[in-house]
């Protein structure tokens, strides 16, 4: 499985005085079973990019290749692509509409022509992956808590068994408990189903905690595409782009400046603890 963009350009209001390039020559390659973080400030082009990855938007220039095939070529079924590349929008719970949780999650697979039985089977699997207990299957999705609703909405996309799952700010508006629950489940899905996850987030701390690769987009171009440690070593450049490093990285810089020989590459609490413990001897 490979999804690739080549010199992807997307222009709003093409041919008018207001023409603006939201994407300006994006080249990325997405492979099997990756956990990717996509970051960029508001208006950087993140959302425009992810809508190209499942063919919702058509590029002004350039190509999107699914397993080597141009998705804009004649005869390519872009609807089928959407089964392979699942997109969970921001606040997906606003799109819940069915009378029961199970029916809502079955909607996608049934719409793709699966039998009632197969659809239910997939829905159960998806709901298990997102941690929704069976006792809620017959409840109205609107009676659930905010975090549960969102997990039902994610299950709706998962039931399509996508090879790539894209989540646009899946934790926006959730409390820390709900955030950890969703991200923990998403990490489990990536591990257990072998799918690739692309997480769009404004939280550098969440990105640092979970992903293996970070793509940074700025003014419609890819600014960095690398492992987290290397991306977050560019603190100043990230700040100029309206982003930041994880909180922990700043803490480590402060400690370093105060004379502690700690590792400023640490991006998570765990890494920071290990690094600091290596530098001090507790008075037991």
């Amino acid at each position: 499985m490979e999804l690739k963009t080549q010199n992807l350009v997307y222009e709003y209001d093409s041919g008018t005085d207001y023409a603006k390039r939201a994407l300006d020559g994006v080249d990325i390659t997405i492979g099997k079973n990756e956990f990717i973080g996509l970051i960029g400030h508001t208006g950087s082009g993140k959302s425009t990019l992810i809508q190209h990855l499942n063919g919702l938007l058509k590029a002004t220039e350039g190509q999107v290749l699914w397993n080597g095939r141009d998705i804009y070529s004649a005869g390519f079924d872009r609807r089928e692509l959407r089964g392979h590349v699942g997109l969970v929008f921001q606040y997906p719970e606003y799109q819940l509409f069915e009378t029961t949780v199970l029916k809502d999650v079955c909607f996608g697979p049934k719409n793709r022509g699966l039998s009632e039985e197969d659809a239910i089977c997939r829905a159960r699997e998806a709901l298990t992956l997102t941690g929704i207990d069976e006792k809620y299957y017959e409840s109205s999705p609107f009676d659930l808590s905010g975090g549960q609703k969102r997990r039902v909405a994610i299950a709706g996309v998962l039931a399509m068994q996508p090879e790539i799952l894209i989540l646009d700010e899946p934790t926006a508006g959730l409390d820390p408990g709900g955030r950890d629950e969703i991200l923990g489940r998403v990490a489990g899905i990536q591990r257990e189903t072998g799918s690739t996850v692309i997480l769009v987030s404004h939280s550098m701390d969440d990105i640092a905690e979970y992903v293996d690769r970070i793509i940074v987009i700025d003014k419609g171009c890819i600014a960095f595409d690398d492992v987290p440690v290397r991306v977050f070593s560019h603190v100043e450049e990230l700040e100029k782009m309206g982003l930041s490093a994880p909180q922990i990285t700043y803490v480590m810089h402060t400690l370093k400046n105060a004379g502690f020989n700690v590792d400023t590459d640490a991006i998570t609490v765990k890494e920071a603890v290990d690094s600091i413990m290596g530098q001090i001897r507790p008075h037991f």
Binding site: D175, P176, I248, V251, V269, V273, I276, M277
Partner: peptide, 19 residues
Amino acid sequence: KLDVPKVTKLAHELKKRGV
């Protein structure tokens, strides 16, 4: 279902390790 700032969490974890 809440949390503490990352630096507070770091200090808390260090304390658990005897610091």
